[in-house]
Structures are given as C-alpha cells and as structure tokens.
Simulated assay, not measured.
Amino acid sequence: MKVIYEDNHLLVVNKPTKLATMGATGQPTLHGLACDYLRRVYNKPNRVYLGVVSRLDSMTSGVIVFARTSKAASRLTPQFANHSGDGAKKTYLAIVEGQVQSQEGILVDEMYKDEASHRMRVAPHPRPDSKTAKLEYRQLRSQQNATVLEVKPLTGRKHQIRLQWSEQGHPILGDRKYSANANWPSGIALHSWKLSIVHPTLKERMNFEAEPPSCWDRFWR
C-alpha cells in the first residue's frame, strides 16, 4: 500500500491487486493495512477511525480515498453517490481483449445482480431489479490483440466496467469471472487511475493519480 496524500481529514492510497478494501474475514484488507499505518506513523496504539467512503474490487488496483474523521466521511460519501457537478469523478485504465473499433464512445446497459451465480448480468430490457449503467471511454493505444482504454463511469454500479466490456465482446484481461480468455499477472487489467473529489473542509477540488502496477509496463509505459 503506497500513500499518495494525507492530511487531518483524508488518507489517499494506491491499492494493490488481490486485496479487498474491507470485510474479508481472516484475510488482510486495505482498510486494515491503512489503520495499521496510521497507528504506526502517529503512535496511536488503540483503535483509529478510518471511514470507508468508496470501494475497489479486490482484483482492481489504484487510487482510493479514506476519511480520517466522521465529518469527512459524512461529506465525502454523498460525493460518491453523485457522478456529476460536485460529485467524485473517477477515471480508470482498462486493457481489454481484442481491437475495439470505435476510438471513443458511451456504453449504456441495464444491469442486475444474479444472486445464484454471485455476479452481475446485463438485461436485454429494463426489469424491476435492474439499474442503468453508463460509462464513457476513449482509446489510448492498441497493441497485439488488446486495447488500452480510458474509462469514466457515469454511474456507480457494481462490476460495471467489467461487465459492460465483457458484453461488448472485449472482456478485461485476466477477468475470468466475466469471460476473459487472456491471462494477467496479478488481479485483472483494471486500474483506478485518477480520482477527483471536493475536500471535505477546504471545499476545494483535489485531484489524485496512481500509476498502474509494473505488470502494465509493456502496454502502458
């Protein structure tokens, strides 16, 4: 876990892959590592407060923010529910299988949770338990049989980027859950690249960025 930024209200880190944000019973979590970091650096042997205001899938790497005070948490949480105006703005990097034809575009799908198979699915038509998922993208480069994309989710659905690109016939490299054929060295080829939020007390927009892991080198650098 690499610390990108910290002050009295925020802790922004670069999350490695294969690490749950929180809630993984009997296994290390990003939240646990971040709490250990605060105890060690600030010499606080007892419990420390660290609010989870958004999450990343365990197989995804990249920038994520924690709230160091309850006031910060109460002001940050609504930002992640609002994807316009003063809301949080996320930009991901994704490497998908095959050659994406369009240089840029928008994907819109109806998504619902398949409880039996523990995954999200796309519905051909709206249904009572489905929600609209929307993202915009542009190509950054293509290499061999893969395309590197910049992806900006315009809604905040679970596994949205993973499922929507799988439905396009371009699953994310390494994402076996959503039909990938190609392997990936660690986790999947999805990285939370940039995060923009309004600081909970300063009221100024702040921008954070995390470079992808070294296994991206041949596609990215």
Rank of each mutant, 00 (worst) to 15 (best):
D57H: 09
Q103D: 15
A81D: 10
I95E: 04
E104T: 11
T91E: 13
D36I: 08
Q79W: 05
A67H: 01
N46S: 13
M59F: 02
G51I: 07
S70E: 05
T29H: 11
E97I: 11
H83W: 09
S74H: 10
V53C: 08
A94V: 09
T91S: 05
V48M: 04
R39P: 10
V52R: 04
H83P: 11
S54A: 13
R55L: 08
G98W: 08
A24Y: 03
T25G: 00
G87Q: 04
C35Q: 15
G62P: 03
C35I: 12
N43K: 15
Q79F: 05
V48S: 05
S61T: 08
L56T: 10
V63S: 01
K71D: 12
K44F: 09
T69F: 02
Y37C: 14
H31T: 11
K44N: 13
V63T: 02
G62N: 00
R40Y: 14
T69G: 01
S84C: 06
A72C: 01
D86I: 06
L93K: 06
G26D: 11
V96G: 07
Q27T: 11
Q79N: 03
G51Y: 06
E104N: 14
S74C: 03
S58T: 05
S74P: 00
D86N: 14
V53W: 07
Q101G: 08
L33T: 06
F66A: 01
A73Q: 12
S70D: 02
T91D: 01
Q103I: 04
V41Y: 08
